[in-house]
Design a protein around this nucleic acid. Structure first.
Lengths: 405, 405
DNA sequence: CGAATTAGTTTAGACTCCCAACTTAAGTCG
DNA sequence: CGACTTAAGTTGGGAGTCTAAACTAATTCG
């Protein structure tokens, strides 16, 4: 029997430095602009230590002095803000019908945001090649701008294990694709590559850029053909034993409902997945994958126009979604649940019923505090989350150093 | 809007020492007996550093030299084992029909294990008083033995918030009882007191003392009148926003099943909770709370004797339990799921069907690796977990110091 | 213009880990 | 039996970190 009684990594004095560099960096990010004295007072670090840390971060161009000083008694303070512009983090996303890439600098500023239509169902070889080509272009562009690329994270709609191998991606038709190694090779081995599930990256994006950024118990729900949850619990991503957490699509919500791909009946996904949503509105045959966006827009338009059938279908779907989410909320007690993907345009009609059901279905009073909202991050949330994931590495202690130029 | 963008605590050189003391302590615990040289080789710490750390731990009597040396070429090694006997951790448990207390030393050795019948439904005042009296006796006994009590953790069947206030404990009839403060006061303010949900402590016990100790993604299921899950994810307890995680009892598993206390139909708890289990075996009126243990024993006896009705009922219950667990496993992807409480004696008949259903109900291949077993910790698992929780504090860096005697 | 106030730097000291040399205590072998 | 080999553990010096206290710097107040 394998014993998991692993021993944590020892620490040394350099780790103290790293920890405190991150403390200062995060403090400035959260309280920008601020002075060295502010940092010392708030963190408890000594003034001298703060000065030393700040000098280090200025050298790395992770901070910048705004020169601006305040106007009150005593010596004026030099204000600090986050810079980070010499470093870039890249996030990418492959889906059944598009590729996306987003780059941000370490200060969090959006550097580029590309999106192109793409038939993701053409097999892993073509998908990987397209991703690699896009990644190379992004990296080349960023390098040309003089930025160092700290890493690339790719989001995939499917099960991804800890090593970055895509185990199953039903909508892409992928099995056991070692995307991480392939991309790493395609980028000349020069850039760190991570691969993760799109829901996990969605929640990473919300955790860094959403209106509730920093919420330590956060859930993000992808609203695509399939439904997946990205979970942050206790401030850290919840990945599970093999990285397969968040498969909420098969919670039973409708007794004797329609048969689901998993073999059971009335699963959340088969009832409030996108196909079901469109089907429930009841106009003819289900749309082909390429026309899902149009179909959703159409649905939203009809709902906005007061179409009774659509309104009723969306309300019912909201209730069922809320039921599924109540199961999740009972298990995880999240603070925020964010709906993403195609749920966003339909949120005005889904949310009221979903919230009501969530409130009544959670055992803890007041739904355990859980608040249900729709994402405001727009399209390519997973790609944005990929970039966020790279920035998380910085926050975890991988403080980048400027090339000796 | 409250921003959660909190900044982590700064580190200093003393934290390095603490971290490394824990590294050495945990290494010895996992690889006892071992030499200083073994520790240095395995952890990467310098020999000199290890010597210094070990000296410190010997002074605190957290380690002990066994004097025993090996028999091979080169200077013989002084072997080290965990001591910890001067320090005691206490766990307690209150339930509808009993009180329990367990004490262990920091080496993990069981010091005492008390259990007494008690009517927990007599209201919070009587329950708190009884717990306090028991705690005082335990602490007095340990002190008389010359042990320093590091802390007491109490398990309660209900929702407990982060401050140790029991929000709701249905089976005890408690609401908003500040048990932590009450007990802390009753113990003269001299001992740290923690309060937690019994399922959370059950999983803490399994995580430290179970056959799969150390498994970072572990779930424990209480099998009492209610069903609750204690969750460890990524090596840390999953508590959720307000500490209300693990409420698995209301996953819908039987379409149009019996009405549950929560108002819906076919909830896991109403279908495979203890009352339902006994009811499904079909002999007369449901037993009163005091006779549940007897009723379960009777069920096990009849199943062992081959009673068709009981066997069929248990198999069906196992299937439904497996269905509920598959929802949990899809969301959390645990490595081990341990059944506790009254499920243990019934496990031989519940497990096969539950495992089959779990295997087919989880989307990830091979149930995502999840293995379902019955607890081997016996009664008072929550109390044992309470003691484990106190020891977790040591592992988190609260290294105890011997009183200057 | 000097006192008060606040920001930030310098310097000395304590603590930690690491490295290299050393001491200690065995077994090995001629 | 004694020199050699092997391995465990200790000692002393060095580098890096934080802290405290003294110091310098820049501004407002009176």
């Amino acid at each position: 029997m394998i014993t998991h009684q692993s021993v944590p990594r020892p620490a040394d004095v350099a780790d103290v430095r790293t920890t405190n560099l991150v403390v200062v960096l995060r403090f400035v990010r959260a309280h920008s602009p601020c002075s060295r004295a502010d940092i010392a007072a708030a963190t408890g670090l000594n003034k001298a230590t703060v000065s030393s840390l700040v000098t280090d971060l200025l050298d790395r161009r992770l901070l910048r002095e705004t020169g601006v000083t305040e106007n009150r008694i005593g010596r004026p303070a030099t204000m600090l803000v986050v810079d980070g512009s010499p470093y870039a983090a890249v996030g990418m996303e492959i889906n059944a019908d598009y590729l996306a890439a987003v780059a941000v600098d370490v200060g969090g500023r959006r550097l580029l945001s590309w999106r192109r239509a793409f038939d993701g169902t053409g097999g892993p070889a073509r998908g990987t090649a397209a991703l690699a080509a896009l990644a190379r272009r992004v990296v080349a562009r960023l390098s040309a701008d003089g930025r160092r690329v700290l890493g690339v994270t790719v989001g995939v709609p499917g099960l991804v294990d800890a090593a970055g191998v895509v185990r199953v991606a039903p909508n892409l038709g992928w099995h056991d694709v070692d995307l991480r190694a392939d991309l790493h090779r395609a980028l000349g081995g020069a850039v760190d590559v991570l691969v993760d599930n799109d829901a996990n990256l969605g929640v990473a994006a919300e955790h860094r850029y959403g209106p509730h950024a920093g919420t330590p118990d956060l859930v993000y729900l992808t609203g695509e053909v399939g439904i997946g949850a990205g979970i942050i619990a206790g401030g850290r991503p919840l990945r599970g034993f093999r990285g397969y957490s968040g498969e909420i699509g098969h919670v039973p919500v409708v007794p004797d409902g329609p048969r689901c791909g998993c073999g059971r009946r009335g699963c959340l996904e088969s009832v409030v997945g996108l196909a079901a949503l469109i089907g429930a509105a009841g106009d003819g045959p289900p749309p082909t994958p390429e026309h899902l966006t149009t179909a959703v827009d159409d649905l939203a338009t009809r709902a906005g126009a007061g179409d009774r059938q659509v309104l009723a279908a969306l309300e019912l779907s909201g209730t069922r979604l809320g039921l599924g989410l109540s199961v999740l909320a009972n298990l995880l007690n999240p603070e925020k649940i964010v709906l993403g993907g195609y749920y966003v345009p339909l949120a005005p009609w889904l949310l009221p019923a979903a919230r009501a059901e969530l409130g009544s279905g959670v055992l803890a009073p007041d739904a355990g505090g859980a608040v249900l909202t729709a994402s405001t991050l727009g399209h390519s949330a997973a790609a944005l989350g990929g970039a966020a994931r790279v920035l998380d590495l910085v926050d975890a202690g991988r403080i980048p150093l400027l090339d000796p130029a």
